[in-house]
Simulated scan of single mutants.
Amino acid sequence: MARPDPTEFTYQRILVTAGTKGAGRATVERFLAGGARVITAARAKSDTLSGVEFVQADLTTPEGTAALADAALTRFGGIDVLVHVVGGSSSPAGGFTALSDAHWQAELDLNLMTAVRLDRLIVPQMIARKAGVIVHVSSIQRTLPLPESTIAYAAAKAALSTYSKALSKELGPKGVRVNAVSPGWINTEATADFLKLIAEGSGGTLEEARQSVLQALGGIPLGRAAEPTEVAELIAFLASDRAASIHGADYVIDGGTVPTV
């Protein structure tokens, strides 16, 4: 992969959620490499994360998103690029009957409402300047759900993708670009935790859990999961001036997993 232009995002003020691990961390590091000022938030701070403004907050709550938005606008005076990476699933395997109302609410709060709430707080200052970029990280499960393990997550991501498209229609005429990125399997810590959750629910091994997910996905034609840096590169492209005419799109990065056009 080519070395990033160290001036590509100079003077850009960028907010990335969940920027201490996985694809979120890779995205933070990609923007830093391009010269941006970056702020992020997570429930727990990483001691190895440097050069970034940090807010310790639970973004699944209204109070957490408000704390991050207030810190971002106060410290930076505004946000030019808003990237929603936060997401995931902690619900048990076992299909729809295994999920309680609490499981459903938790998945919706993490995968949908975090973005909705933060957009509501951050986007008005973009509209006032008639400039800004929003990238929502969805999932291929928006169209390829895995009902045995992540039905609530898949539904929440489908809602996020629909919300993102609707927002693009409203904000495009106001100078704010909105796009989505839908990864397939990414090689992250969260993926490992997800496989452990499936293994615990089924009573099987981690390898059996991995194979069950691959079977449910129908395989990955490219033969491997995406690396966090590859997802970050796509996000950076969509946030850059190189993508100035790309708006209301949803880019799949899944190694060919989704079998349809």
Rank of each mutant, 00 (worst) to 15 (best):
E148F: 07
H136Y: 10
F54N: 00
F9C: 04
E189H: 04
A128G: 09
G64K: 12
F194K: 12
G94I: 13
T188N: 01
S202A: 08
R210Y: 08
A159C: 05
R224W: 08
G94L: 06
S182E: 13
V85T: 15
G223N: 07
T205M: 15
S164M: 06
A166R: 13
K157H: 04
A226N: 11
L32W: 12
P221W: 09
L222C: 06
S90V: 10
L206G: 08
L68C: 09
V28L: 07
T60N: 14
V137H: 10
T61P: 05
T114K: 01
I39F: 11
L146D: 11
E189L: 03
K130M: 06
I235S: 05
T61Q: 13
S91Y: 13
T65R: 12
F76C: 00
L160C: 04
I39M: 14
V137I: 15
S91R: 13
V81S: 00
I198L: 13
S139I: 01
P147W: 10
M113D: 15
T17W: 09
N179P: 02
G201N: 04
G172V: 08
G218T: 02
D5P: 04
L99K: 14
F237R: 04
G51A: 04
S164E: 05
Q12F: 13
I246S: 08
G24S: 01
L167R: 10
A42C: 02
I39H: 12
A44T: 14
A71T: 03
A72F: 13
R37V: 06
P4W: 07
E29N: 04
